[in-house]
């Protein structure tokens, strides 16, 4: 479960990047985080993962408050950042092992999990290579494996489908669904509205750091005349411009 209450963040006294944002990702739910570029999605995600410190508000990851129990909270988060170019001088297998060591993945399940994820994303043949030679998509797959190898309860994924081939994207979406169905929570940001429409139980739409909508897709459609998500989103952004 992720519980965000009245989260606010501003940089260098400028306009608020995130303003009084509240929402909840319940166990068993996939929530899509939607908004135009610069809306505050990544800033919110970075606060949720402990990278940025909020000016005010609270973040709870399961029972752990990020302000008080950051260490425990971080242990149960699986986070994919928006940049996959991390530690590219390491071999794929070294990187996954390093992350597994950091998150204390025990010996008896480690190889099995690496094998499973490598199979899901077609990485078996390249694990023994330096990640410097990987394509953008391959690096993104490595980031996914690294984020999930410790079997975290809460998945926080910043545009996880970027750069993935269709098969890998399909597999990741299935994994997200399965993880939520097992009683865990998944939050992911995306610009691909069709994916959000098909996959998410709820969506949060933000712009200029402020929440425009939070709820189920049915509620959204009910409110905006049964259009598809793309049309509704564009309408909402147009209305924002008029304000």
């Amino acid at each position: 479960m992720i519980e965000i209450s009245n989260l606010t963040k501003s940089f260098s006294n400028e306009k608020k990047a995130v303003s009084d944002l509240s929402f909840k990702v319940n166990d068993g739910e996939i929530v899509g985080f939607i908004g135009p570029n610069g809306a505050g999605k990544t800033t919110t995600i970075k606060m949720m993962t402990g990278i940025l410190k909020p000016d005010s508000g609270s973040i709870k990851i399961n029972e752990f408050d990020m302000a008080k129990d950051a260490f425990e909270a971080k242990k149960i988060i699986g986070y994919i950042s928006d940049s996959p170019d991390m530690f590219v001088k390491l071999k794929g297998i070294e990187f996954i092992n390093f992350i597994s060591d950091i998150y204390r993945v025990p010996n008896d399940v480690r190889a099995e999990r690496i094998k499973y994820f490598a199979g899901q994303f077609g990485l078996e043949d390249v694990l023994d290579n330096s990640m410097q030679g990987y394509s953008h998509g391959m690096r993104q797959k490595m980031m996914i494996v690294a984020a999930l190898v410790h079997n975290p309860a809460v998945w926080i994924l910043d545009e996880p489908l970027t750069g993935l081939d269709p098969q890998s994207a399909f597999n990741l979406k299935n994994m997200m669904r399965q993880h939520a169905d097992e009683g865990n929570s998944v939050l992911f940001s995306t610009h691909v509205l069709e994916v959000a429409e098909k996959l998410c139980d709820k969506v949060i739409i933000i712009n200029h750091g402020e929440k425009l909508f939070y709820g189920t897709l049915d509620e959204l459609k009910e409110k905006h005349g049964n259009n598809d998500l793309e049309k509704i989103f564009l309408e909402m952004m147009d209305n924002e411009k008029l304000l």
């Binding site: 996954i96 190889a111 043949d125 391959m138």
Partner: peptide, 28 residues
Amino acid sequence: NSAKVKESRKGYEKLLDKCKMKSVEKAY
């Protein structure tokens, strides 16, 4: 070119066998 990726599944099982847990300090 960047470093070449030589695709090979040879030794993949051995690679997995070598995946043993180290202390955080040692790994970092």
